[in-house]
Lab assay of single mutants.
Amino acid sequence: GKMTGIVKWFNADKGFAFITPDDGSKDVFVHFSAIQNDGYKSLDEGQKVSFTIESGAKGPAAGNVTSL
């Protein structure tokens, strides 16, 4: 299901971020390909987002990341 959280930090050079979920679970890795914005895919620290949890090769990662 959809979860919500806050972007903890975003590394534009490497194209990934971490989200701190609102439910208090541990921070979730985000690859820029999961960001659903049109055009430039970036996130801002402190931004509120919704996302799903996908199981990636290196463990859980956020999918369908959308700005709220």
Rank of each mutant, 00 (worst) to 15 (best):
S25P: 02
G1Y: 08
T4E: 04
F16S: 02
E45G: 06
S25K: 03
Q36W: 09
G39V: 07
A62L: 11
F51C: 02
F16P: 00
G59P: 09
K8A: 04
G1R: 14
E45C: 15
Q47P: 02
S33L: 04
G59M: 09
M3L: 08
S50Y: 08
D23G: 04
G39A: 09
A17H: 00
V65Q: 06
T4F: 06
N64S: 09
V65L: 12
Q36F: 10
V49R: 00
A34H: 12
S42R: 10
S42T: 12
S55N: 10
K48N: 05
H31R: 08
D27Y: 03
A17I: 06
G63N: 09
S42Q: 10
P21E: 01
I6L: 05
D23R: 02
P21V: 05
F18K: 10
V65W: 01
G56H: 12
G56Y: 09
N37K: 08
V30C: 05
K8L: 07
D13C: 15
E54G: 08
V7S: 00
F32R: 06
T52G: 04
F18L: 12
G1W: 06
I19D: 00
I6R: 08
D27V: 05
F16G: 04
A62R: 04
D27C: 13
G59N: 11
F16V: 14
F29C: 15
A34T: 09
S33H: 09
D22I: 06
N37F: 11
P60L: 08
T52K: 05
I19C: 01
I6F: 05
K14S: 14
K58N: 13
G39F: 08
S33F: 05
G46M: 03
G63P: 09
G5V: 01
G46D: 02
I53F: 08
E45Y: 12
I19N: 00
G1Q: 12
F32W: 12
I35K: 01
K58G: 14
S50R: 06
G63Q: 09
G56F: 08
I19R: 00
G39R: 04
D38P: 11
N11I: 04
G15N: 06
K14W: 11
L43E: 01
D22M: 07
A34D: 13
S50W: 11
F16N: 01
F18P: 00
A61W: 06
T52W: 12
G46A: 02
F29N: 03
A17N: 00
K2Y: 10
K58R: 08
G59H: 07
I19P: 00
V28H: 03
L43W: 10
T52E: 08
G1T: 12
S25V: 02
E54R: 05
A61Q: 15
G24F: 03
V28T: 04
K41H: 13
P21C: 03
G63I: 14
G46Y: 02
D44E: 14
M3I: 08
K41A: 10
F32S: 05
D13S: 08
D23K: 02
W9A: 04
P60K: 08
Q36K: 05
E54C: 15
F10E: 01
H31G: 05
M3A: 05
K2S: 11
N64C: 15
D22T: 05
I35G: 03
T4N: 04
S67C: 15
L68C: 15
V28L: 14
A57C: 15
V30G: 00
D44A: 13
A62V: 11
A57E: 14
M3F: 07
F10C: 14
W9F: 09
L43F: 12
A17G: 15
S33W: 06
S50E: 10
K8I: 10
M3K: 10
G5F: 02
F10Y: 11
S50F: 09
K58A: 14
G1E: 11
K41L: 14
N37L: 13
D27M: 07
M3R: 10
D38G: 11
F16T: 04
A17L: 08
D44Y: 15
G39N: 08
V7L: 10
K41Y: 10
A34C: 14
A34I: 06
G5Y: 01
G24T: 02
F32A: 07
D27A: 08
D22K: 02
T52P: 04
G46H: 03
S55I: 14
S25T: 08
F29T: 05
T66Q: 13
S42P: 07
A61K: 10
I35F: 14
E45S: 12
F51I: 03
V65E: 15
K41V: 11
G46E: 01
S50T: 12
G56P: 12
N11Q: 05
N64G: 07
F29E: 07
V7A: 00
F10L: 13
K48A: 07
Q47S: 10
D23S: 03
Q47T: 10
Y40W: 14
I53P: 06
G5Q: 00
G63R: 07
D38Q: 10
V7G: 01
L68I: 15
D23T: 03
A62C: 15
T4Y: 06
F32M: 12
K8E: 01
F18A: 09
G5P: 00
M3G: 04
L43C: 05
G24Q: 03
I35R: 00
A12P: 15
I35H: 03
F51V: 02
K2I: 12
A34K: 12
D38T: 07
N64A: 07
G5R: 00
A12M: 10
A12F: 09
S67E: 15
D22F: 04
A62M: 09
S55A: 12
T66S: 06
F16M: 12
Q47W: 05
K41M: 12
K8Y: 02
V7N: 00
Y40G: 11
K26P: 14
A17P: 00
H31F: 08
K58D: 13
T20E: 05
S55R: 06
S67L: 04
V65M: 05
G24E: 02
G56E: 11
I53S: 06
W9S: 06
S50P: 01
D23L: 02
G56L: 08
V65G: 14
E54N: 07
S25W: 02
A61R: 12
P21R: 02
Q47V: 09
N37Q: 11
T66K: 08
V65K: 15
V65H: 09
V49E: 00
V49A: 01
F18V: 14
N64T: 08
T66F: 00
F18S: 06
V7R: 00
K8S: 04
K2G: 06
I6G: 01
A12N: 07
S25A: 04
D13L: 09
N64P: 09
S67G: 15
K14P: 02
A61E: 15
A61S: 11
M3C: 07
F32H: 07
K8H: 08
K48P: 06
V49S: 00
E54Y: 08
N11T: 05
D38A: 13
F32G: 03
D44G: 14
A17K: 00
G39Q: 08
G46L: 03
A17C: 04
N37W: 12
D44C: 15
E54K: 06
F32C: 13
S50I: 13
L68H: 15
E54M: 09
I35S: 03
P60N: 09
I6Q: 04
L43K: 01
D38E: 07
K2T: 14
G15I: 03
V30P: 01
D44M: 14
D23A: 02
F32E: 07
